[in-house]
Structure formats: structure tokens, C-alpha cells
């Protein structure tokens, strides 16, 4: 993450998420998958554990993040302010 901080955050609504893997395809730098296939902030992305549901995004990732929000089959994603 740049010194200026994240451009935005990708909020994951865990009550909706089913780990179908589309967002991890679209945002390979920001997200990996956990043991069960759910999106996981890439190593080093998230400092505090409380932020694990709001993954910081760089400006360059915003376009892909918007696609992820649109394509998420479970409507589990939302872009929030930094």
C-alpha cells in the first residue's frame, strides 16, 4: 500500500459471501483465498485484524473492484471510503 494510504476499501459482507472466487480472480494482488475458498486479504494488506472485512485497495485496483462488486454472485461486496 502506498504511503498515501488506500484509495478505497472493499467491504466483504460475510453473511452473504459464499467464496465463489470471482473477486479473487479480479483482484489477485489484493485477495487470496482461505482454506475454505473465502476471500482473504493478501499477506501484508491488512494490519489490524478488525480490518479483515474491509480490504484496502490501491487506485489502480478500483476498476477491477467495481467489476467484482457488479459480478459477485452473492452481492456480498461493497466499495467503501478509505
Amino acid at each position: 500500500m502506498s504511503v498515501a494510504g488506500p484509495a478505497a476499501r472493499l467491504h466483504i459482507d460475510w453473511t452473504m459471501c459464499d467464496g465463489r472466487g470471482l473477486c479473487t480472480e479480479l483482484l489477485p494482488e489484493a485477495l487470496t483465498r482461505d482454506d475454505w475458498g473465502y476471500p482473504l486479504a493478501a499477506p501484508g494488506r491488512v494490519r489490524a485484524r478488525a480490518d479483515a472485512s474491509n480490504v484496502p485497495l490501491t487506485g489502480a485496483e478500483l476498476g477491477a473492484a467495481v467489476d467484482a462488486v457488479k459480478l459477485c454472485p452473492l452481492l456480498a461486496l461493497r466499495i467503501t471510503g478509505p
Binding site: I12, W14, L40, V46, A48, R49, D51, A52, S53
Partner: peptide, 17 residues
Amino acid sequence: SGLVAGRGACHHPDGTV
């Protein structure tokens, strides 16, 4: 613990961790 913490709608996983 790292996989569970902070990844829920409520603090149940965080508290358990």
C-alpha cells in the same frame, strides 16, 4: 486464528480468537 479473526459480521470469531 489469523484466518478467523475480523472476518465475520459480529465479533464471535474475534472473541474466540
